[in-house]
């Protein structure tokens, strides 16, 4: 599963890091960092992260 975050849209709300801490984290500068690919077993978490992003910046691609 591939993950992209539209960084022009992302406002570092950090909600994704609450929902899927294995994939998204907020670094010490307060900026979002994320894994561009994640194991299928994390799909639920990542879907949840995409749902709760207030600016809907997270997109998921299969494969």
């Amino acid at each position: 599963m591939q993950i992209t975050v539209d960084m022009k849209r992302c406002q570092d709300h950090g909600q994704c890091a609450i929902a899927a801490p294995d994939v998204f984290r907020i670094n010490d500068e307060g900026r979002l960092e994320y894994e561009p690919t994640a194991d299928e077993s994390l799909r639920d978490e990542v879907e949840e992260a995409a749902d709760v992003c207030p600016v809907q910046a997270i997109a998921l691609l299969d494969g």
Binding site: D12, G14, Q15, I18, P21, I26, D28, G30
Partner: peptide
């Protein structure tokens, strides 16, 4: 900082 949200929630 957004880092704190997890703990606050």
């Amino acid at each position: 900082p957004p880092k704190r949200q997890r703990e606050l929630r």
